[in-house]
């Protein structure tokens, strides 16, 4: 099992509740910012990746709401808020 599929199946173990919109957005025009490329390394859920055009894209499935990307990239690059109440990850153990 590759490390990536391992991560996907691990995220599948968590309880997630859907929200009407994803709570993190890459700011327009910042998709190629080199600081944003570092988010690929630090996101524990592997939600950030780089597309062939060199832009960083963000997948909305499986966010752990840990805040690491916000610490790494700051509000200059990301619109970051918590998911609306009662949605998102719900840890059963924590």
């Amino acid at each position: 099992m590759s490390l990536t599929t391992g991560l996907k199946s691990k995220l599948g173990l968590n309880v997630f509740k859907e929200s009407s919109k994803f709570h993190i957005r890459i700011k327009e025009g910042k998709e190629k910012d080199p600081r944003l490329q570092k988010a690929v390394l630090v996101c524990p859920a592997g939600l950030y990746s780089q597309n062939p055009e060199g832009e960083v894209v963000l997948s909305s499935d499986g966010c752990l709401e840990c805040g690491t990307c916000l610490i790494a990239c700051g509000r200059e690059l990301l619109d970051w808020e918590y998911p609306e109440g009662g949605s998102g990850v719900q840890f059963r153990f924590g």
């Binding site: 570092k38 390394l41 630090v42 996101c43 524990p44 859920a45 610490i71």
Partner: peptide
């Protein structure tokens, strides 16, 4: 450390570290 992860030259990904 988030800073160390951001600066790691080998581009180690944090979730891979745990695996």
């Amino acid at each position: 450390s988030i800073k160390d992860l951001l600066e790691n030259q080998r581009e180690v990904i944090v979730s891979d570290l745990l695996e």
